Computed example of a mutant assay.
Amino acid sequence: MTADADADADADARHARKMAARKAAQDRKMADKTDRQGLVIVHTGAGKGKSSSAFGMILRCVAHGMPCAVVQFVKGAWDTGERRLLTGHFGDLCQFHAMGEGFTWDTQDRARDIAAAERGWRMAQALIRDPDIRMVVLDEINIALRYGYLEADEVVAFLRAEKPPLNHVVLTGRNAPEALIEAADLVTEMTLVKHPFRAGVKAQPGVEF
């Protein structure tokens, strides 16, 4: 063998030993992990992608044949791509409830916003209680919590007491309250680095909706 071939063989052997050690360590980590647990998942932060990530999980549920549901707390009558896709092609697996009436600066009516949020929360409670619905996404509920349209402690108490043990609930929106973050099993904060809106570019189909 040439010197280069010997060097390649040594590098391959070192890589194999390293990967074997990593696999053994990973196997030890996995040994005490439970196979199944319903999760409370929070997507928050100022960056884009909170709802997009939640809808990605909904599509995974659909692909696995798992019944799921979406309750939108802000995007009421918006004609979004996710709404078209899920209601038009997967309505047998995914319930879609657009309960909001737009952003608070659109309605400019606090009582109306509170009433819409309460309707959405009642719908969400019914869906979460159903053990056959494996995932419920509460899209932009954190906005309702931030403005005091719903009480964070009430939402957390309900999730702890009534969510079926193997079912998942995903709550999206910036400014998630600390009580919800503390209660969640998985929390992801989307960080804003750059956004085209700051350069004068409006929301676009396929990107934002």
Rank of each mutant, 00 (worst) to 15 (best):
G120A: 06
A46S: 11
M57H: 11
G148A: 08
A7H: 11
A63L: 13
E182A: 15
E151H: 10
A184C: 03
E182P: 04
L85P: 05
G173T: 07
R134F: 02
R122A: 13
L93K: 02
L138K: 02
E101F: 05
A116K: 03
M99Q: 01
E189W: 02
T104A: 07
I143L: 13
A24E: 12
D8E: 15
A13Q: 07
R129Y: 02
A77E: 12
G56E: 04
G102F: 02
A98T: 00
L93W: 00
G45A: 09
D8T: 08
T188V: 08
A25P: 04
A126T: 04
E189Y: 03
P67H: 14
R36Y: 13
L186W: 04
G200A: 09
A98Y: 02
C94L: 05
V42D: 11
R129L: 11
I133V: 14
I181M: 14
H64S: 14
M99P: 00
G88D: 05
R129F: 01
M99G: 00
M66E: 14
V170N: 05
S52N: 13
A117C: 06
G102I: 07
V62T: 11
A157M: 05
G65F: 13
K75P: 13
L150H: 01
H168S: 00
L138Y: 01
A126V: 03
L86R: 01
A111T: 10
C94H: 01
N142M: 09
D27V: 12
F73C: 10
P67I: 12
A179M: 11
N142T: 07
G120N: 08
P165R: 10
A183F: 02
D8I: 06
W105V: 00
V62Q: 06
R198F: 15
V42S: 05
E189F: 02
T34S: 15
A20F: 13
V156F: 08
G49L: 12
S52P: 11
D92P: 02
E178G: 09
F90T: 00
Q72L: 08
A21S: 13
M190G: 04
D4Y: 08
F90H: 08
R122F: 06
G76E: 04
T34L: 15
R198I: 08
